[in-house]
Amino acid sequence: MSLSKADVEKIAHLARLAISEQDIELYSRNLSNILALVEQMNKVDTSAVLPMAHPLDTAQRLRDDVVTETNQRETFQAIAPQVDCGLYLVPQVLE
């Protein structure tokens, strides 16, 4: 599978990555090469194989419903790019 310039633009948008015009071609070549590598997977028939999401064959542990956290807003927001009145600020969101 080789990716066109338009494919790369679409993927970059979905992943919210700004890619400059002059880099798109390089990315489409790189990504196409990676996909060619990845497609070696098709050499093996896996129709009867169960997918493996995780190396451990165990179940989720459940936590007791206890409040353990205290307010650390000041610490957390000391490293935030932009805050006001305890809120994180972003360019206006339109619904």
Partner: peptide, 13 residues
């Protein structure tokens, strides 16, 4: 998202 005007921005709680 709080859409009241924070200097033309949206506040996130």
């Amino acid at each position: 998202s709080l859409h009241e005007d924070f200097h033309g921005m949206t506040g996130i709680d």
